[in-house]
């Protein structure tokens, strides 16, 4: 059980998060909301990348507010970055081994889960020679490989093509079925939101709505944008 109590975060005189109170059990929770609502900030606070200005984070009853990123990772909290990180000299297999903590693990399945063929990718460098979409999928694979109890995905759909995205939704569903842990997904995408057991809508740093998918989905204004053809 992960619990956020009165979480506030301000930077440069601007209040980004304002008294957030949330509880996450073993479920898929999707946090959605407009750009600038504070979704990614909240995800980073859970992972320890950002420190809240005030408030507490409890994990299985233990106060982890002051725990480092490494300590949280060792407590089985994992985080998929919105922007995948490039490493010169580090190969895909090196990253997956670091993530899975298994020297001789079969890494093929992790890449298969994100629609990449292992023999084409394992020895490639995590650098500019891979496209943004490929790096993003490898970032997700590295987090799936951790098999953590709490897994946070910050806009996993960003930079991924539609075909891969459809498969990714199924991958997330399978992952949740196998780990039976807590999955927190930051997303704007309707298909990703449909995965949710619980939906949290943030607006201007506050929880605007929270509830089961069936309660919240009908209230979301996900409709085609006439101007750009995208969703809003």
């Amino acid at each position: 059980m992960l619990e956020l109590i009165d979480i506030c975060y301000a930077t440069n005189g601007k209040q980004i998060l304002d008294n957030i109170n949330l509880k996450f059990s073993d479920e898929i929770a999707v946090i959605t909301g407009a750009n600038g609502a504070g979704k990614s900030t909240l995800a980073k606070i859970v992972m320890g990348i950002l420190k809240p200005t005030s408030g507490k984070i409890l994990y299985n009853g233990q106060d982890i507010t002051d725990f480092s990123i490494t300590e949280r990772a060792k407590m089985s909290i994992a985080f998929a970055f919105q922007q995948p990180v490039k490493f010169k000299g580090l190969r895909v297999m090196d990253m997956l081994r670091l993530a899975s903590k298994q020297k001789n693990a079969s890494l093929n399945a992790y890449l298969g889960d994100v629609g990449l063929c292992a023999k084409d990718y394992l020895t490639r460098e995590l650098s500019g020679e891979l496209s943004g979409g490929e790096l993003k999928r490898i970032e997700i694979a590295s987090v799936l490989a951790r098999k953590a109890k709490v897994t946070i995905f910050d806009e996993p759909e960003a930079g991924i093509d539609l075909w891969s995205f459809t498969n990714l939704v199924q991958t997330f569903r399978n992952f949740q079925n196998s780990t039976q842990g807590t999955m927190i997904i930051i997303s704007h995408q309707e298909k990703m939101i449909e995965l949710a057991d619980k939906i949290i809508v943030l607006n201007s740093g506050k929880v605007e709505k929270i509830g089961k998918k069936d309660e919240i989905m009908p209230t979301l204004s996900i409709k085609s944008c006439n101007g750009c053809g995208g969703n809003r």
């Binding site: 992972m47 990348i49 480092s68 990123i69 490494t70 990772a73 060792k74 994992a78 985080f79 970055f81 490493f87 010169k88 000299g89 580090l90 190969r91 090196d94 670091l98 993530a99 903590k101 590295s142 951790r146």
Partner: peptide, 18 residues
């Protein structure tokens, strides 16, 4: 760090890989 490495281990991995 998010994979559970401490700062020294992370630096070593980055440098050795590089």
């Amino acid at each position: 760090l998010s994979l559970g490495l401490d700062e020294k281990e992370a630096e070593d991995v980055i440098i050795q890989g590089f």
